[in-house]
Structure formats: structure tokens, C-alpha cells
Nucleic acid binder design. Structure first.
Lengths: 215, 215
DNA sequence: TTCGGAACGGAATGCTTCGTTCCGTTCGAA
DNA sequence: TTCGAACGGAACGAAGCATTCCGTTCCGAA
């Protein structure tokens, strides 16, 4: 006997499936709308999703609830990207690639810009803490790889993401390109050298053979 | 016989002087308020200036008028700083110093962020054009000085300023510091090398003496 | 000293924008 | 055939804000 929900697994079916599709449509529309304007009216989300307002309120008790959900999703995305980046063998590549992906997905607009418009849950607090720890780990790994300026700290990543997120033109794809360009300049400024000097760096005592006693 | 205005040149005098002081107070308050929030209510400006709303409307026909004035002032500041920077003998120093001053003064928030909220005057259009030309000149001089990446274009300056202007914390002075830090990273990324290699760069034919025929 | 009016403070007005609620309708599932 | 989950969208009420209006103050000229 099937459960009340999920009875029809087929992609197109009756009311239940339509509702499930609306779930996704609303979330996607909300993401797009609030990414474009963090204090857009809720009606804009409904319109973009192609549904009525009540379809929205059936799922979220209030606008604040919806924003909380979006922000938390963004936070989880950040954490996931950071974890994936830590799995990258090269510390600098992991760091740079992480930033590119986070900037591309505009995670910053979903998290920092939305936070403050609602009271966060405890779980969000924990995830934010974890995000911070992961960022620190990424920075340290990049530094240990010898490619990151030693005076860069975890919080600098926040500044950098804020700066990229601020860049915006009407066309989303062009926005992404411009942010990538800006990020490239920032990464160049963050790196001690790009590309790095090839080969292992000179070691102590590597050149004093000249002064060694010959036998 | 003195003209109706300007009768009393003394700093502290009657109603006329008070009005003159209000002129300045209102402009300063407006700058501070709209710098903090580009769509703050006009009442906030009046309150910050310590005057009533009517004192404001006596001077500006509408909110739009006030914003236009602020934006134009910012634009003029930009042009003035650019002209001063072009007088600097070192092209790179002129470029970098210009950016630091413009970022410190938060000129970007006064111009780009306010533009679009009103219809600009013709003079503003001319000044904006001039600002663009001056920026191009600054970029070219920095490039000719051999310190700027050759693939940097005029519009990159806008991106850069936008990124810096986005950085903001409650304390204005701390905001300035953080922006300076961010700008330093950007400048490092913009520079081909910092500090530049000392001495004149190697010239062609400078090393082929080894292969010259000895006489 | 007198008096016109420049300058002002701030309440009142009218409008727009929004979040949220409410009600009538639709149509899949049993 | 019937029930109710899922909707669409108008209606409501609160809030924010630019602008206007009116009564008051007090400088400055006569």
C-alpha cells in the first residue's frame, strides 16, 4: 500500500505531481528573484513561478520562512563546496576553485545578503560556524601550499566574496563573467606569484658547496 | 549698499548666517545619510542635520533635486581627483593614489549608486563623459609606466570601485580600513610586479656582446 | 520701536507598496 | 459521485514616505 504522498512516481501525473513540481518551481523562482533583489515582494516570486500567492503560503508560513529556507540552502551549498575543495590535492587549486564555484553560484547573495532579514535557527548557527571552520582550513591549506600570501586571514575571504557579489549587470551570464574577471585579479593579488616559480624552492645549504673544502 | 544676501560676513550672526550654516549642515547630513543608505527617507536627512523638513524643502524642490546635487558633487570630486592624479609624475603612483583617495571618500556610493534614481542634467552627462576620459588617461599612463597589467581596461576601474564600495561595516573608519585592505589586494593583482624590478629593463642587444667579434 | 516676511518646525495628507488573509473554484482520487 | 487538497487572485490593513500646509519665531530695515 502506497503512502499518501509519492503514490505516483511518474514525472507527469495528477494533482500530487503538479504540487511536487510547484515545490521546485517556487524554490527556483524564489532563488532567482531574491538573488536579483534581496527585498523583492513575495508576489514577484509567485509570478515568476507561474503560481498564485496561495500556492506559496501553503508551503511557507511567511516570507521570513521562505527567506530562511533559501539562506540555509545557500549555507549548505557553501559548506558542500568547501568540503569538496578540501578533497582537492592541491591546496591552492582547492582554494581558487572553491572561490570560483561559490562566486559563480552567487552563494554570497543567498547567505550574507539575506541574513539579518530573519531570525536564524540554531541549525543555521551551527552550519555557519562549520562554514567558518572550513574556510579557515581552506585558507591554511592554500598557505601551506606556498601560494597564498601569508598575511591573508579567513575573514579576507568574506571581503572578497562581498566584493564579487557586488558586481552586477542586467544580464546574469555577463555578470558571472565580470565577477570571474574581478576574482582573477583578486586571486592574482592574493597569490605570492602566479604562476609560481617552477621546481622546488632553494633550500638552505644548497649553494654553499662553493665554499666547501675540496678533497 | 549690500546685496540682500551676504550682508553679514561674520561667521556667527543672525538669521542669514544660521541659514548659511544650515546649507552646509543639510548637505553634509545628506551625504552621510545617503552614503549609508541610498534610499533613506528624506526625514532622516533633516533629523541628522538637526533641522525641520521645511528647511530642506526650502532649498531643494524635491528629493530628486537633492540627490542630483549630491551625485553631481561626487562626480565633480571624481573629476578633480583624477585631474590631480594626472599631475603626478609617476603614472602608477598617480593611478594607485587616485584609487585610494576615491575609495576613501566613497565617491562611488555618491555617484553610481545614486545615479538612476533621478534624471541627470546635461552637465552631469558631460562631466560623466569627462570622468571616463580621465580614467582612460590614468589607466594608459599607469600602463605606460610599465606597472599595470596590459590587459586592464578603463571599465575595470569601475568594477574595482564597485567591489570596494560594497564593503561595509557599521563603523565608518573600520569600513575605510577594510576597503583599503581590499584595494591593496586588487592593486597587487593589477600590477605586473610589486615592487617592480629595479633599474631599467634589459634592452635588445644588451647581452650579445659575448658573441661580438673581438678586435 | 515697529512691522513685514524670510526661515523654520513638524503635524497632516495622500499615495504607494506589501505581507497576509479569505473565499470561491477546480479536479484528482477513492 | 463526492470530498477536500491545492489553487488563483482579489481584498484588507499596516507601514513607509514624499510633499504640503500652517502657525511661530525673530532678524533686519525703516
Amino acid at each position: 500500500m502506497p503512502s499518501p504522498t509519492g503514490t505516483t512516481a511518474a514525472p507527469l501525473a495528477g494533482r500530487r505531481a503538479q504540487a511536487a513540481r510547484n515545490d521546485a518551481a517556487i524554490l527556483e523562482a524564489a532563488r532567482a528573484v531574491f538573488l536579483d533583489d534581496s527585498k523583492a515582494p513575495i508576489a514577484a516570486v509567485a509570478e515568476r513561478a507561474g503560481v498564485g500567492i496561495s500556492a506559496l503560503y501553503r508551503r511557507y508560513a511567511s516570507k521570513e520562512d521562505l527567506l530562511r529556507r533559501l539562506c540555509h540552502d545557500g549555507l549548505r551549498r557553501y559548506v558542500a563546496e568547501a568540503e569538496a575543495a578540501l578533497a582537492e590535492p592541491d591546496g591552492w587549486q582547492g582554494f581558487a576553485g572553491f572561490l570560483e564555484r561559490v562566486v559563480d553560484a552567487d552563494v554570497h547573495s543567498l547567505t550574507v545578503h539575506l541574513a539579518g532579514t530573519f531570525t536564524p535557527t540554531e541549525e543555521m548557527g551551527r552550519d555557519a560556524l562549520r562554514a567558518n571552520e572550513l574556510t579557515t582550513a581552506l585558507v591554511e591549506r592554500a598557505r601551506e601550499a606556498g601560494r597564498l600570501r601569508p598575511d591573508v586571514v579567513t575573514q579576507d575571504v568574506g571581503l572578497l566574496l562581498e566584493g564579487c557579489a557586488a558586481l552586477r549587470v542586467p544580464d546574469p551570464e555577463r555578470t558571472r563573467q565580470l565577477r570571474r574577471r574581478h576574482l582573477a585579479v583578486l586571486l592574482a593579488g592574493l597569490a605570492v606569484a602566479d604562476p609560481p616559480l617552477p621546481g622546488p624552492p632553494p633550500a638552505v645549504g644548497e649553494f654553499d658547496w662553493r665554499w666547501r673544502r675540496r678533497e
